[in-house]
């Protein structure tokens, strides 16, 4: 335990609170991932961990190192920006892949998948 003792009390309590909040949100998100019934509901679950959870833990990390080294340590902002920008991209790609697969197999899913209006506009039909 190097450094943890040097932290002033207010910072230690704030870091502890943010850590618990962030990891709790992440855990809730993955519990949702494990419990939801259909794929389209599950897509919503990881965003809980990547927005609230990652945000709280990264702020905790920034606060901890800034107070400890008594200078602003802001490089965690990079991870924040990166996670915020990339997670929507992957989830969007996954949702599109899922709806494409569901439509080509005609299963439709359990939640009233809308019809393929405008899908056959040449975007996906290039390979056939």
């Amino acid at each position: 335990m190097n450094g943890l003792e040097d932290l002033p009390a207010w910072a230690a309590l704030l870091v502890a609170f943010l850590l618990l909040l962030g990891s709790g949100l992440t855990l809730l998100g993955t519990i949702g991932l494990a419990r939801f019934k259909t794929f389209y509901e599950r897509v919503h679950a990881p965003t809980l961990g990547t927005t609230g959870g990652a945000g709280a833990i990264l702020i905790a990390s920034m606060l901890f190192f800034s107070v400890l080294q008594s200078r602003p340590v802001l490089h965690e902002v990079l991870i924040t920006v990166f996670v915020v920008v990339t997670t929507p991209v992957t989830l969007m790609l996954l949702a599109r892949a899922a709806i494409y697969r569901d439509r080509t197999e005609g299963t439709g899913g359990a939640s009233g998948l809308p019809g393929d209006e405008g899908v056959n506009d040449g975007e996906h039909t290039g390979r056939e």
Partner: peptide, 28 residues
């Protein structure tokens, strides 16, 4: 807009048709 909608828990961007401007989102 796609990043905002997907990053907000509870809504997810699924599909957008550029020719008729219709967007399909899924809401929890």
């Amino acid at each position: 807009l796609a990043c905002i909608i997907t990053a907000t828990p509870g809504t997810a961007w699924v599909e957008y048709h550029a020719d008729n401007g219709r967007l399909l989102i899924h809401v929890l």
